[in-house]
Amino acid sequence: MAKHIQVKDLDIYYDEFLAVQGVSMTIEPRSVTALIGPSGCGKSTFLRSLNRMHELVPKAKVEGQVAINGRDIYGNNVDPVDIRSEIGMVFQRPNPFPTMSIYENVAAGIRLTGARMKRSEIDDLVERSLRSANLWNEVKDRLHKPGGGISGGQQQRLCIARAIAVDPAVLLMDEPCSALDPISTQAIEDLINDLKPDYTIVIVTHNMQQAARVSDTTGFFNLADVGQPGRLIEMDTTAKIFSAPREQATEDYITGRFG
């Protein structure tokens, strides 16, 4: 079930270094939100603070509020493991488990939940997830071959299948297409469109056209200078951001007149 995300005054640190400062935003359910901005402005850092992956970095910390359907994920009694299991994440480089088969990769999340499922139920779920990820036809005859033995684009779709197999409320994607060819990129963009009615999707991308094609809302991050924290400069509907942004910096960035 898709969920609503409310971020308030978020500061994100690596040890003493303030990497992202003062971000507030609202992310609507059943929509695609794109995050754009120059390299190093903290898009990945911000994204990883939405499912508490950020704190896996030693000494990293987060201040402020992230509420998912009203519940503060940084609240006192919240287990980060629970949060991560409710939020799917797809990384820049495809990272299927090389020691597992394609099938086991997709089933990995279900096995973690400890849910007692019959073999046939898991089979169904694996098939459904692979179909949603537009990968079923390509791998149905080699489900028990290694997850690392398919092409990069297929691996990335496998990672998406793995992420959606547990039916997460939110799907976070960090430059999911940056290692892929145009055809695989197309496949993933189509997939994002297909998934939109059921999920809340946040995608980081360096590709303006991609942001324009897939997203409903776009947030532009920027940093004043090297060593300064990144900030959310502007956030609006994608149509607005790409046609009439309020900020000069946004316009410079999307028209390529940046830096």
Partner: peptide
Amino acid sequence: VPRLHEEAAHALGATRWEMLRMAVLPFGR
């Protein structure tokens, strides 16, 4: 063990021990 694989397990909601079982032990087998 590549960080990417550890992160993949964490992102699925693995505890540290589950992450070790999913990503590290098979890799080190």
